[in-house]
Protein backbone atom coordinates (compact mmCIF):
# COMPACT_ATOMS: atom_id res chain seq x y z
CA UNK A 1 0.00 0.00 0.00
CA UNK A 2 1.14 3.55 -0.57
CA UNK A 3 0.70 7.24 -0.89
CA UNK A 4 -0.17 8.98 -4.14
CA UNK A 5 -0.08 12.67 -4.96
CA UNK A 6 -3.52 14.15 -5.66
CA UNK A 7 -3.12 17.02 -8.13
CA UNK A 8 -5.45 19.20 -6.18
CA UNK A 9 -6.92 22.65 -6.07
CA UNK A 10 -7.54 23.76 -2.52
CA UNK A 11 -10.07 26.55 -2.10
CA UNK A 12 -10.71 28.04 1.31
CA UNK A 13 -14.23 29.33 1.81
CA UNK A 14 -14.76 31.86 4.58
CA UNK A 15 -18.00 33.36 5.74
CA UNK A 16 -21.37 32.33 7.03
CA UNK A 17 -23.63 29.48 6.00
CA UNK A 18 -20.89 27.60 4.20
CA UNK A 19 -22.33 24.09 4.63
CA UNK A 20 -25.84 25.03 3.43
CA UNK A 21 -24.27 26.89 0.51
CA UNK A 22 -22.26 23.83 -0.57
CA UNK A 23 -25.13 21.46 0.21
CA UNK A 24 -27.42 23.31 -2.17
CA UNK A 25 -24.96 22.96 -5.02
CA UNK A 26 -23.76 19.36 -4.80
CA UNK A 27 -24.97 15.78 -4.79
CA UNK A 28 -24.03 14.59 -1.31
CA UNK A 29 -25.43 15.80 1.98
CA UNK A 30 -22.93 18.41 3.17
CA UNK A 31 -23.09 19.14 6.88
CA UNK A 32 -19.53 18.18 7.81
CA UNK A 33 -16.52 16.42 6.32
CA UNK A 34 -17.49 14.50 3.19
CA UNK A 35 -16.84 13.99 -0.50
CA UNK A 36 -19.39 15.44 -2.89
CA UNK A 37 -19.91 16.11 -6.57
CA UNK A 38 -20.69 19.46 -8.16
CA UNK A 39 -22.76 18.96 -11.28
CA UNK A 40 -24.34 21.00 -14.05
CA UNK A 41 -28.10 21.15 -14.59
CA UNK A 42 -27.67 18.21 -16.97
CA UNK A 43 -25.95 16.35 -14.08
CA UNK A 44 -22.57 16.37 -15.83
CA UNK A 45 -19.60 16.50 -13.49
CA UNK A 46 -17.92 19.83 -12.76
CA UNK A 47 -15.68 18.44 -10.02
CA UNK A 48 -15.55 15.85 -7.26
CA UNK A 49 -14.52 17.62 -4.08
CA UNK A 50 -13.65 16.87 -0.51
CA UNK A 51 -15.23 19.18 2.02
CA UNK A 52 -12.94 19.73 5.00
CA UNK A 53 -13.87 21.98 7.93
CA UNK A 54 -10.92 24.13 9.00
CA UNK A 55 -11.86 26.02 12.14
CA UNK A 56 -14.67 28.36 11.14
CA UNK A 57 -13.79 27.97 7.47
CA UNK A 58 -14.23 25.17 4.97
CA UNK A 59 -11.64 23.86 2.54
CA UNK A 60 -12.92 22.51 -0.76
CA UNK A 61 -10.37 20.15 -2.27
CA UNK A 62 -11.03 19.40 -5.91
CA UNK A 63 -8.81 18.53 -8.85
CA UNK A 64 -6.47 21.14 -10.29
CA UNK A 65 -7.82 20.66 -13.81
CA UNK A 66 -11.29 21.74 -12.68
CA UNK A 67 -10.30 24.73 -10.57
CA UNK A 68 -11.48 27.46 -12.92
CA UNK A 69 -14.79 25.77 -13.67
CA UNK A 70 -15.46 25.09 -10.00
CA UNK A 71 -14.50 28.60 -8.93
CA UNK A 72 -16.81 30.12 -11.54
CA UNK A 73 -19.61 27.75 -10.55
CA UNK A 74 -19.35 28.67 -6.88
CA UNK A 75 -18.69 32.37 -7.24
CA UNK A 76 -21.66 32.98 -9.54
CA UNK A 77 -23.92 31.66 -6.82
CA UNK A 78 -22.58 33.59 -3.88
CA UNK A 79 -24.81 36.54 -4.82
CA UNK A 80 -25.01 38.74 -1.75
CA UNK A 81 -23.92 36.13 0.77
CA UNK A 82 -20.95 36.97 3.00
CA UNK A 83 -18.69 34.32 1.51
CA UNK A 84 -15.17 34.71 0.14
CA UNK A 85 -13.07 32.17 -1.73
CA UNK A 86 -9.29 32.07 -1.41
CA UNK A 87 -7.04 29.84 -3.48
CA UNK A 88 -4.56 28.14 -1.13
CA UNK A 89 -3.48 25.46 -3.59
CA UNK A 90 0.06 26.82 -3.75
CA UNK A 91 0.43 26.45 0.00
CA UNK A 92 -0.49 22.80 0.26
CA UNK A 93 0.26 19.40 -1.20
CA UNK A 94 -2.50 16.82 -1.19
CA UNK A 95 -2.01 13.06 -1.00
CA UNK A 96 -4.24 10.01 -0.94
CA UNK A 97 -3.18 7.17 1.34
CA UNK A 98 -4.55 3.71 0.71
CA UNK A 99 -2.75 1.94 3.50
CA UNK A 100 -1.12 2.99 6.70
CA UNK A 101 1.37 5.54 5.47
CA UNK A 102 2.97 7.66 8.20
CA UNK A 103 1.13 10.89 8.83
CA UNK A 104 3.03 13.88 7.42
CA UNK A 105 3.78 16.80 9.76
CA UNK A 106 1.02 19.40 10.13
CA UNK A 107 -1.23 17.27 7.94
CA UNK A 108 -4.98 17.65 7.93
CA UNK A 109 -6.40 14.15 7.67
CA UNK A 110 -9.69 13.64 5.90
CA UNK A 111 -11.67 10.46 5.11
CA UNK A 112 -12.13 10.92 1.37
CA UNK A 113 -14.05 8.75 -1.06
CA UNK A 114 -10.70 8.03 -2.73
CA UNK A 115 -8.87 7.00 0.46
CA UNK A 116 -7.37 8.72 3.46
CA UNK A 117 -6.54 12.24 2.35
CA UNK A 118 -3.61 14.25 3.71
CA UNK A 119 -3.42 17.99 3.13
CA UNK A 120 0.16 18.96 3.91
CA UNK A 121 1.90 22.36 3.90
CA UNK A 122 4.29 22.49 0.92
CA UNK A 123 7.17 23.58 3.15
CA UNK A 124 7.51 19.96 4.34
CA UNK A 125 8.19 18.81 0.77
CA UNK A 126 6.42 15.54 1.48
CA UNK A 127 6.73 12.96 -1.28
CA UNK A 128 4.47 10.20 -2.56
CA UNK A 129 5.53 6.57 -2.32
CA UNK A 130 3.41 5.37 -5.21
CA UNK A 131 3.60 6.09 -8.91
CA UNK A 132 0.49 6.84 -10.92
CA UNK A 133 0.68 3.32 -12.38
CA UNK A 134 0.57 1.76 -8.91
CA UNK A 135 -2.37 3.98 -8.00
CA UNK A 136 -4.14 2.97 -11.20
CA UNK A 137 -3.64 -0.74 -10.46
CA UNK A 138 -5.12 -0.19 -7.01
CA UNK A 139 -8.08 1.67 -8.49
CA UNK A 140 -8.72 -1.09 -10.99
CA UNK A 141 -8.71 -3.71 -8.23
CA UNK A 142 -11.13 -1.65 -6.14
CA UNK A 143 -13.26 -0.11 -8.90
CA UNK A 144 -12.39 3.46 -7.92
CA UNK A 145 -12.93 6.16 -10.56
CA UNK A 146 -10.50 9.05 -10.77
CA UNK A 147 -10.12 12.47 -12.32
CA UNK A 148 -9.20 12.58 -15.96
CA UNK A 149 -9.89 8.89 -16.42
CA UNK A 150 -13.48 8.06 -15.49
CA UNK A 151 -14.33 11.38 -13.86
CA UNK A 152 -14.72 13.84 -16.73
CA UNK A 153 -17.10 16.60 -17.74
CA UNK A 154 -18.76 14.16 -20.14
CA UNK A 155 -19.95 11.86 -17.37
CA UNK A 156 -22.63 12.01 -14.72
CA UNK A 157 -21.86 10.63 -11.23
CA UNK A 158 -24.02 7.51 -11.50
CA UNK A 159 -22.39 6.47 -14.75
CA UNK A 160 -18.79 6.59 -13.60
CA UNK A 161 -18.85 4.86 -10.23
CA UNK A 162 -19.72 7.81 -7.98
CA UNK A 163 -23.20 6.63 -7.02
CA UNK A 164 -22.18 6.52 -3.35
CA UNK A 165 -21.74 10.29 -3.46
CA UNK A 166 -25.28 10.93 -4.71
CA UNK A 167 -27.45 11.19 -1.62
CA UNK A 168 -30.82 9.53 -2.26
CA UNK A 169 -32.91 11.68 0.04
CA UNK A 170 -31.47 15.15 0.27
CA UNK A 171 -33.37 18.10 -1.16
CA UNK A 172 -32.84 19.99 -4.36
CA UNK A 173 -29.43 20.65 -5.85
CA UNK A 174 -28.27 21.41 -9.35
CA UNK A 175 -28.64 18.28 -11.46
CA UNK A 176 -30.88 16.53 -8.93
CA UNK A 177 -33.88 16.09 -11.21
CA UNK A 178 -31.82 14.25 -13.81
CA UNK A 179 -30.09 11.95 -11.31
CA UNK A 180 -33.27 11.18 -9.38
CA UNK A 181 -35.07 10.30 -12.60
CA UNK A 182 -32.26 7.94 -13.59
CA UNK A 183 -32.40 6.20 -10.24
CA UNK A 184 -36.17 5.95 -9.97
CA UNK A 185 -36.44 4.51 -13.47
CA UNK A 186 -33.40 2.28 -13.06
CA UNK A 187 -31.85 3.78 -16.17
CA UNK A 188 -28.52 5.39 -15.56
CA UNK A 189 -27.31 4.69 -19.06
CA UNK A 190 -23.72 3.82 -18.23
CA UNK A 191 -21.75 2.12 -15.49
CA UNK A 192 -18.16 1.65 -14.47
CA UNK A 193 -16.87 -1.90 -14.78
CA UNK A 194 -13.57 -3.76 -14.66
CA UNK A 195 -12.68 -6.09 -17.52
CA UNK A 196 -9.81 -8.39 -18.37
CA UNK A 197 -7.51 -7.05 -21.08
CA UNK A 198 -7.66 -6.38 -23.93
CA UNK A 199 -10.35 -3.79 -23.28
CA UNK A 200 -11.77 -1.54 -25.94
CA UNK A 201 -12.00 2.13 -24.84
CA UNK A 202 -10.47 1.55 -21.42
CA UNK A 203 -10.62 4.58 -19.16
CA UNK A 204 -7.80 3.24 -16.96
CA UNK A 205 -5.52 0.67 -18.54
CA UNK A 206 -3.91 -1.85 -16.17
CA UNK A 207 -1.43 -4.67 -16.64
CA UNK A 208 -4.04 -7.41 -16.75
CA UNK A 209 -7.36 -5.66 -16.24
CA UNK A 210 -8.76 -2.25 -17.04
CA UNK A 211 -11.57 0.05 -16.04
CA UNK A 212 -14.09 1.12 -18.63
CA UNK A 213 -17.49 2.75 -18.78
CA UNK A 214 -20.06 0.67 -20.62
CA UNK A 215 -23.65 1.19 -21.63
CA UNK A 216 -26.09 -0.59 -19.36
CA UNK A 217 -28.68 -2.95 -20.80
Amino acid sequence: MGLVRHKAAVLLLQGQGLFPFLDGLSTNHVDGPCTTVFTTRAAKIIDVCDIIPVGDHVAVVGHAMNKEALTAHLSERILGQPITITDISELNDVFIDVGDSPTPPDATIHPSFFGRMFVVPVKHEWQPTWTDDEWNEYRIDNLIPYHGHEITAAQHPLGCGLGALVHPQKGCYIGQEVLTRMRSRGKQGRELVVKTNPVDKATTKGRERSLCIVRTQ
Binding site: V10, L11, L12, Q14, I52, V54, H57, A59, T71, S75, T84, I85, T86, D87, I88, L91, N92, D106, A107, T108, V119, V120, P121, V122, K123
Partner: peptide
Protein backbone atom coordinates in the same frame (compact mmCIF):
# COMPACT_ATOMS: atom_id res chain seq x y z
CA UNK B 1 -3.06 22.30 6.05
CA UNK B 2 -1.48 25.66 5.57
CA UNK B 3 -4.11 28.34 5.69
CA UNK B 4 -2.24 30.45 8.24
CA UNK B 5 -1.44 32.93 5.54
CA UNK B 6 -4.86 32.81 3.98
CA UNK B 7 -5.89 36.03 5.65
CA UNK B 8 -3.11 37.83 3.85
CA UNK B 9 -3.66 35.92 0.61
CA UNK B 10 -5.76 37.59 -2.04
CA UNK B 11 -9.27 36.23 -2.25
CA UNK B 12 -10.29 35.04 -5.70
Amino acid sequence: MDCGTCESATPL
